[in-house]
Amino acid sequence: MIRALGLMSGTSLDGIDAAIVETDGEGVVRAGPSLSVPYKPEERKLLSMALEAAKSWEPDEIMPEEVAEAERHFTLANALAVRALLADAELKPADISVIGFHGQTVLHQPERRRTVQIGLGDVLARLTGIDVISDFRSADVAAGGQGAPLVPLYHQALARSAGVKEPIAIINVGGVGNITWVGTDGSLIAFDTGPGNALIDDWALAHTGEPLDRDGTLALSGEVDIEVLEKLMMHAFFDAPPPKSLDRFSFSAEAVAHLSPADGAATLTAFTVETIARGLAHVPGVPSRFVVCGGGRRNPVLMSMLSKRLQGGVLPAEDLGWKGDDVEAEAFGYLAVRALRGLPLSLPGTTGVPEPMPGGKLHRAGFGKRD
């Protein structure tokens, strides 16, 4: 068993999740302490500027200054999150074997064999005194995979640890939505389904000044525009078979721009739900239950829509004893252990890579670890 600390910063741009997990990198998982550190307004602004600058960043060009500046601040913020979690857990750096540092995705173009997660792994190792694994996606994309999603192997381990024997669908509603199907034999199918919270969050920020539709209040006061929803669902991505993955900016809210703030929020929420339902056409059967992770599970309007659309069986991760806010951070601690052991991080059934693919880059903390 190895004690690892995972760091995750998703496409919702809400903050940094840090979680400790003890695992063998295979089927044994014990989740430990965790915390979430919301981004400060200036940090969110830096990351938003980096995302915008990265849209026009070509492979033969040096990193745009906006991206480089965001990377420096982002790395420091992650180091502070590690220190805060260790203090809360009354642990020392020497008590942690490795940090799994996902970084912040600023560019995801698997069709061009390119994906970029900013974050200076070597600097984080020096600042924390703990070995760091970073760059989890590049090897997969370079080999022809989608580079996402990477969490399904951890979903599989969680399902095993929970004693789940029947087919189960694990739905993550972060900035982007994705599904993991775990079959009775442990087989995995995973893929991105469409926008998760990203469009809803952006819409809420633009119309209310809040970075999310808290408790689905805005959507609850509106009505779904069926005609607009049908138009949104005409995108070719939804009928394409997996493996498939998305960038945060693969979709826009342009189709709802003429709607009221409330109707726009309701329609975008229904859009996320419909993309998940459409995605289930690509799994081999009806699962016994749908377990929802990520920030979307805290939106009661989204969860109600999802339960109605999937005809029941929808439950938050906590009903299985999982910590829904921590699953992805735990996953990158788990994947860091797999990387240390030379085990695959992705499979043909999860990212479409031709064969099980190891990955990650190790950054040593130096001679000896800090007390």
Results as ranks from 00 to 15, higher is better:
G294A: 10
G294Q: 04
G294D: 04
G294T: 08
G295K: 07
G295D: 14
G295V: 12
G295N: 13
G295H: 10
G296E: 07
R297H: 10
R298C: 01
R298F: 09
N299P: 09
P300V: 05
P300T: 06
V301G: 04
L302Y: 06
L302F: 14
L302N: 09
M303I: 06
M303C: 07
S304N: 15
L306D: 03
L306E: 02
L306M: 10
L306K: 06
K308T: 12
K308A: 13
K308W: 05
K308V: 10
K308F: 03
K308P: 03
Q311K: 09
Q311E: 09
Q311D: 10
G312I: 14
G312L: 13
G313R: 14
G313Y: 09
G313D: 12
L315G: 05
L315P: 03
L315W: 03
P316V: 12
A317N: 14
E318V: 04
E318Y: 02
E318W: 04
D319Y: 01
D319V: 07
D319E: 14
L320S: 12
L320K: 12
L320A: 14
L320C: 14
G321V: 06
G321N: 11
G321M: 11
G321P: 06
W322F: 13
W322T: 04
K323F: 03
K323R: 13
G324N: 09
D325N: 13
D325L: 07
D326H: 08
D326L: 11
V327M: 12
E328S: 06
E328P: 08
E328Y: 01
A329S: 11
A329F: 02
E330G: 07
E330V: 12
F332I: 13
F332M: 13
Y334A: 12
L335H: 00
A336F: 02
A336N: 02
V337C: 06
V337S: 00
V337K: 01
V337T: 11
V337H: 00
R338F: 08
A339Y: 00
A339M: 09
L340G: 04
L340H: 05
L340D: 05
R341Q: 12
R341K: 15
R341H: 10
G342E: 04
G342C: 08
G342D: 02
L343V: 09
P344W: 01
L345N: 00
L347C: 08
L347Q: 03
L347H: 01
L347K: 02
L347P: 05
P348A: 08
G349F: 02
G349T: 10
G349Y: 01
T350I: 12
T350Y: 02
